[in-house]
Design a protein around this nucleic acid. Structure first.
Lengths: 172, 172
DNA sequence: CATATTATCTCGCCCAGCGAGAAGATTGCC
DNA sequence: GGCAATCTTCTCGCTGGGCGAGATAATATG
């Protein structure tokens, strides 16, 4: 039971890291008048912008696990703060296109930029072999997590309007 | 922008991993009638129990970034669900000692046990050199995160009774 | 013994997110 | 073309997690 093998300590460190990253993000969000969800939304939108993926409320809500009402509220907040701009899609006028503003980009870069930059520099300072080891480790852990996510907790448990929870897996 | 240097990709993978772990935890929590905060509290309490650290509401609240009212609410929920038991500390009767129940231990082990076990096995499958590389990487990233936390967003920005948001850092 | 400090809890409020459903746009079928 | 089904987003009302303020009880400090 309490037999910490050599690997356990590493896993514990990884877990601690994720917790610390979470806390950092939360404190950053608070500092800028954002809620954790707002920050997650902003990150998702910045990612989409960088990748050239068109961003819409529906897509974003699905990504964040929010229903449409909650998604609208998030976007209202972000728009009021000047981080996001809504505009109708000319090709399908039911849709709303979401664009991040300069301000949002600056916000994201200003904070996560240095953090990511330092981490990237750290990785770049490793030898090719070491880098491969780290990447392999991260990829393997992701794979483990993905397997457990599929088996134990479906990522899309409930959605808007449609009760997807007809099986509520009552754990007593 | 779209020029991922060698290190950037690794950092991106790490970020994706943290997001996925977060989603997994959230879906697991929902599945057991817990809120994300409740699960975080439970994990913290299980950790404390495993380490032999005495757990109290104050300590827990500080760890979770909640004020005392919120902490009380979390504990009320966990106690109602039978995961935690409160008892007064005989040595300092202001304090409340928190004990996790068998049920909570089973809950945590049943879900995170296999996950952590697989990850630990993964690490154990590495050579000593590789393991050192991974551990060094994680430790370095933690150090970077810690530095940014201190410089940009103090981990104890606001606490009970003291409004930590006296400066709302209006960007621009 | 009086006072300050510590630890926890109670009360009232705010607002994030949910469910339900409305409104506008598109697609398909006749 | 016209009408219905579908899709996307938004509005409304509500629940409840978390905060601020303060109460209460116990321990330190003079």
């Amino acid at each position: 039971m309490n037999d910490p093998g050599p690997g356990l300590r590493t896993v514990h460190t990884l877990r601690a890291l994720t917790v610390e990253l979470d806390l950092l993000a939360a404190s950053f969000a608070q500092r800028h008048g954002l809620h954790p969800t707002d920050l997650r939304a902003l990150i998702a939108l910045l990612d989409a912008a960088r990748e050239g993926t068109p961003a819409t409320p529906g897509r974003l809500g699905r990504e964040l696990g929010l229903n449409s009402a909650g998604t609208t509220a998030v976007l209202d907040r972000l728009e009021r703060l000047g981080h996001v701009h809504r505009s109708r899609d000319p090709h399908d006028r039911r849709r709303v296109l979401l664009a991040v503003t300069e301000r949002a980009v600056a916000l994201g870069q200003g904070f996560f930029g240095p953090l990511i930059g330092e981490a990237a520099a750290l990785v770049d300072g490793l030898s090719a072999t070491e880098r491969a080891t780290v990447e392999g480790f991260l990829a393997s852990v992701r794979e483990i997590v993905a397997r457990h996510a599929n088996g134990d907790g479906g990522p899309d448990g409930n959605r808007d309007g449609n009760g997807g929870a007809e099986q509520d897996a009552e754990a007593e």
